[in-house]
């Protein structure tokens, strides 16, 4: 089984971007690319070739679910595991997010020390 290496994180909030980048790079040892919007992610995703994508749900412009739908249109990204990041983790919503093709939902606010492990666990679940 290959290793989780490249993580694309789509998030509009600069404070969370910074924390997530540090948390994923330092603790997880991943290569991380941050995009500030769904549009930016669509432009950059294929070149970056992520192993896994994390999507904030609530973003101005393209929100998480529509970004996911658009990413799935690209053949190279059709199978890439995706997790949503959101504060709203009502079970019905989790189910709904999963039905869109996401692996799972990571609750916000996330714990910086744990984020990398959560992401890796989800990724391993999906690939093995």
């Amino acid at each position: 089984m290959s290793e989780l290496q490249r993580v694309l994180y789509v998030e509009d909030e600069p404070d969370i971007q910074t924390v997530a980048k540090i948390a994923l790079e330092v603790v997880g040892g991943f290569t991380v690319k941050i995009c500030s919007s769904g549009e930016e992610a669509l432009a950059a995703a294929e070149d970056f070739d992520p192993d896994m994508i994390l999507l904030d749900v609530m973003m101005p412009g393209m929100d998480g679910p529509s970004t996911l739908a658009a990413l799935r249109q690209r053949p190279a990204l059709a199978q890439t595991p995706v997790a949503f990041m959101t504060a709203k983790v009502q079970p019905q919503e989790v189910t709904q997010f999963k039905s869109l093709g996401a692996l799972d939902v990571i609750a916000k606010p996330f714990e910086p020390m744990q984020l990398a492990n959560q992401v890796r666990a989800l990724w391993e679940e999906s690939s093995g």
């Binding site: 909030e13 404070d15 969370i16 924390v19 997530a20 609530m58 504060a87 916000k108 606010p109 996330f110 910086p112």
Partner: peptide, 11 residues
């Protein structure tokens, strides 16, 4: 408030 709720918790 939405931003503070999200970022505040993470920080």
């Amino acid at each position: 408030l939405h931003r503070i709720a999200g970022a505040g918790g993470t920080l």
